[in-house]
C-alpha cells in the first residue's frame, strides 16, 4: 500500500485512547503521524515534571490536563486529525459511551486495577470491539522479551511481567516501544479491515 492509500483508508477511522500517559501519548502521536482520521482521548490527570522522561509533553505544558496538552501536540503535527478530548476518570459506563464509535480501543492506563476494569468492560459489554492493552514495560533492555499476544479481539503488548516500581521505573525507550507497538497493531487491524 502506498502512503496515499494508507492515509486514505485511515481517514475514516476512529481510535479511542484510554489514558494519555506514557503509552497513550506516544501511541496517539504515532497514529496522528500516520494519518488517522479521528482520536478520542481520555485522561483525568495533569502533566507533571516526572512525566517528561517518557510522555509526549513539553515543559511549557506542565499543569495542563494531559488530554488537552496531547490534542495541542497532535495539532502541531497534523491539524487535519480530528481530536476529541475528555478530562475524565473513565469507568465502565463512560467507556461504553465515549468509545462507542471507535474502531479500536487502546488501553493505556497506568494502574493494574484500571487495566482490569477496561478489559473486562470491553470483553463483556463491547465484544465486537478490538482492544489493545499494554502490559509489562518497566525498566530497560530485554527488547526480545516484548511480544504481542492475541485472544480473539484482545491484544496484549509488552513483556508480560515487569511491574513498575522504585527499582524498575518506567523509562522513555521501553514505554515508547510498547506504545508504538500498540499503534502498529492498530494500523494492522484497520488497514486489513476492508
Amino acid at each position: 500500500m502506498t502512503i496515499e492509500e494508507i492515509r486514505q483508508r485511515l481517514k475514516n477511522k476512529t481510535v479511542g485512547i484510554a489514558g494519555c500517559g506514557g503509552l497513550g501519548s506516544n501511541c496517539a502521536i504515532a497514529l496522528a503521524r500516520t494519518g488517522i482520521g479521528r482520536l478520542v482521548l481520555a485522561d483525568y490527570d495533569k502533566v507533571k515534571p516526572s512525566n517528561l522522561n517518557r510522555q509526549y509533553f513539553f515543559r511549557d505544558q506542565l499543569g495542563m490536563f494531559k488530554a488537552n496538552a496531547l490534542r495541542d501536540n497532535i495539532r502541531e503535527i497534523d491539524d487535519s486529525v480530528s481530536v476529541e478530548t475528555h478530562v475524565i476518570s473513565l469507568d465502565p459506563s463512560t467507556i461504553l459511551e465515549l468509545f462507542a464509535d471507535c474502531d479500536v480501543i487502546v488501553e493505556a492506563f497506568d494502574i493494574d486495577t484500571a487495566k482490569q476494569m477496561i478489559i473486562e468492560t470491553v470483553l463483556a459489554d463491547m465484544p465486537e470491539k478490538y482492544i489493545i492493552s499494554g502490559q509489562g514495560l518497566a525498566g530497560y533492555g530485554n527488547n526480545e522479551g516484548i511480544t504481542t499476544k492475541r485472544l480473539e479481539k484482545l491484544f496484549i503488548v509488552g513483556d508480560g511481567e515487569t511491574e513498575v516500581s522504585d527499582s524498575e521505573p518506567p523509562l522513555g525507550p521501553r514505554v515508547a516501544v510498547v506504545a508504538n507497538m500498540q499503534a502498529n497493531l492498530v494500523l494492522e487491524i484497520l488497514l486489513n479491515d476492508d
Binding site: 500517559g21 497506568d110 493494574d112 499494554g134 502490559q135 509489562g136 518497566a138 511481567e161 511491574e163 518506567p170
Partner: peptide
C-alpha cells in the same frame, strides 16, 4: 471457553476436560 469470568465468579466457575482457559496478568505501568 471465550467467556469472561469475573473475580467473584471464579470460585463457582467449573473447569472441565477439554476446556480452554485464559488467565491474563494485569501489570501496572503505562
Amino acid at each position: 471457553n471465550g467467556a469472561l469470568v469475573r473475580k467473584d465468579e471464579r470460585a463457582e466457575a467449573p473447569v472441565r476436560d477439554g476446556d480452554e482457559v485464559n488467565i491474563l496478568h494485569m501489570i501496572s505501568g503505562g
